[in-house]
């Protein structure tokens, strides 16, 4: 039996769902989200901030396998990024990398919106409360 509908990379990240979940309360975390379950996709990122960079990122997502796989990969890519360059590429880049069907491109835009929401909620020059562990 062959013929996975997912690309090998999508399958790899979907099967692992690395960086899934959230951080304990009290840590300096910026969270951003987008989408709604009713429309099939909801994505949330949590960024643990150390100084001016992301120390670690985690994601939560409700959606199709491509949504979960891309969100999982992005969460792993966010460490070390600053507010000004938080997004690792564009939805077009992610679509190519994960061979996302064109009819699902809108879901990647939801992921992008969640990251942009993180940027919007990350105060540019204000130190966040708490300390990164």
């Amino acid at each position: 039996m062959t013929g996975d509908t997912l690309s090998p990379l999508t399958r790899e990240y979907f099967d692992r769902l690395a960086h899934g979940g959230c951080f304990p309360e009290g840590l300096p975390v910026v969270s951003g989200e987008a989408g709604r379950e009713e429309t099939g996709t909801r994505v949330r990122f949590h960024l643990l901030i150390a100084g001016a960079v992301v120390a670690e990122a985690r994601f939560q997502a409700y959606g199709c396998p491509h949504t979960l796989a891309v969100a999982s990969w992005l969460a792993g890519e966010l460490a070390g990024r600053r507010r000004e360059n938080l997004l690792p590429g564009t939805p077009e880049d992610w679509a190519r990398r994960f061979e996302v069907p064109v009819e699902k491109f809108g879901r990647l835009l939801v992921i992008e919106d969640a990251l942009r929401d993180c940027v919007a909620k990350w105060p540019p020059d204000t130190p966040l409360p708490g300390k990164a562990s």
Binding site: F14, Y62, K104
Partner: peptide, 28 residues
């Protein structure tokens, strides 16, 4: 609750099963 149908089907390669949702468009 809390699980999208296509993801659940994809997470079950050991079972041949159908989802009620058509996950083929930007909005499911």
């Amino acid at each position: 609750e809390g699980v999208e149908g296509e993801s659940l089907v994809s997470a079950l390669p050991e079972i041949a099963i159908s989802t009620g949702s058509a996950c083929s468009s930007a909005t499911a």
